[in-house]
Computed example of a mutant assay.
Amino acid sequence: MTKKRVGVLISGRGSNLQALIEAAKAPDYPAKLALVVSNVAGAQGLARADDAGIPTQVVDHKAFASRPGFEAVLDEALHGAGVDLLCNAGFMRLLTEDFVTRWLNRHLNIHPSLLPAFKGLNTHARVVEAGAKITGCTVHFVRAAMDDGPIVAQAAVPVAPDDTEDSLAARVLAAEHKLYPHALRLVASGDVRVEGEHVVGISRPEGENALFSPPLPGTL
């Protein structure tokens, strides 16, 4: 099996990166983490990558006068590592339309809500304030607009009556750690593809777990 080479963009602790690292250890996983890039020196995720033997690089956005300048160096690093697919994992920078176009339909992001609901920041506080009964997380292909793009997979998380921002965030994060490796597997294996602005090619067996779309392995 020829594995897709994956670049991961981080800004912080890298817990979703760790989930991808663990998933990629499986011999049948169709992706290999080839490079981890942080825009923040000293980000905890860099240590996670080092521990796993994955090459790392820091491209500090503050060192550049413009976003295109930052992105040019970022793009050079990714191509230098032979990256096929790109994953944002807590990467706290908006990217220009030019960069998004260069990586179109090869660039994934995870967001802690059931998109298109609750885009942007302070997601869990807004969910609790709104009195929502269900929230969750979404893996989608990146587009120039924030938290927008064709949806690959989602996981739903019930909101408890006594939930706080922190308690809800912890449960959603646990769902993210299962969902992101699942979604990357779907994309890297070619089981899904983008047509127009929708992801297609997903089989939906009878009785799939309603909390995951498409179902996670072992949840049927």
Rank of each mutant, 00 (worst) to 15 (best):
A125H: 10
I202Q: 15
H182T: 03
E129G: 11
D147M: 01
G120E: 12
T135P: 03
V194F: 01
Y29C: 00
L121N: 13
D51L: 14
H177D: 03
A170C: 06
L220N: 13
A65H: 04
P116Y: 10
I134A: 13
F141E: 04
W103Y: 08
D98V: 08
A26W: 07
L179V: 08
E129P: 07
H111V: 09
A72P: 00
V139D: 14
P55T: 00
D84L: 01
A19D: 09
A210D: 14
R13F: 05
E165D: 14
H182W: 07
G7E: 00
S66A: 04
P217E: 13
G69H: 03
I21F: 12
V8M: 05
S213H: 15
G136R: 05
N105D: 15
N16P: 13
K4C: 10
L173P: 01
A144Q: 01
P181C: 06
S66K: 01
E76N: 00
E129D: 15
H198I: 13
S167T: 15
N88Y: 13
T2W: 12
K3L: 09
A19V: 06
R48P: 11
F141D: 02
A130Q: 11
A26S: 06
E165I: 08
P215M: 05
T56D: 04
L121E: 11
H124F: 11
S167R: 09
S113Q: 10
F70C: 00
F212I: 03
V139A: 13
G69P: 08
C87P: 01
P112V: 12
K178I: 09
E129W: 10
D163Y: 12
S189P: 09
F118W: 09
N39M: 06
A77N: 02
W103C: 08
H111D: 05
K3T: 14
Q154H: 09
A132T: 12
L74V: 02
A183T: 06
A144T: 05
D60S: 03
Y180H: 01
F118G: 08
Q154P: 12
L94F: 12
R143V: 07
L104Q: 15
M146Y: 14
E195H: 14
D51G: 13
M92G: 10
K4H: 11
V199D: 05
S189E: 07
L9I: 10
N122E: 15
A52V: 03
A47N: 12
P30R: 06
A26C: 04
N16F: 04
I10V: 05
A183G: 07
L114R: 07
V139T: 07
L78G: 00
D28V: 11
P215A: 09
M92T: 10
L104V: 05
K25M: 09
K25V: 13
C137A: 13
K178N: 12
I134Q: 15
R193T: 14
T101Y: 06
A49Q: 03
Y180L: 03
P55C: 00
V37P: 07
H140D: 07
D166H: 13
A117V: 11
L17F: 08
P27N: 13
K119V: 09
H140I: 07
H79P: 03
K119R: 15
L184F: 02
N16S: 11
N122M: 13
V199Y: 13
I21V: 15
G69R: 00
L115Q: 12
A174C: 08
Q154C: 05
K4R: 15
G53C: 01
P30V: 04
A41Q: 14
G14A: 02
V83L: 00
G7W: 01
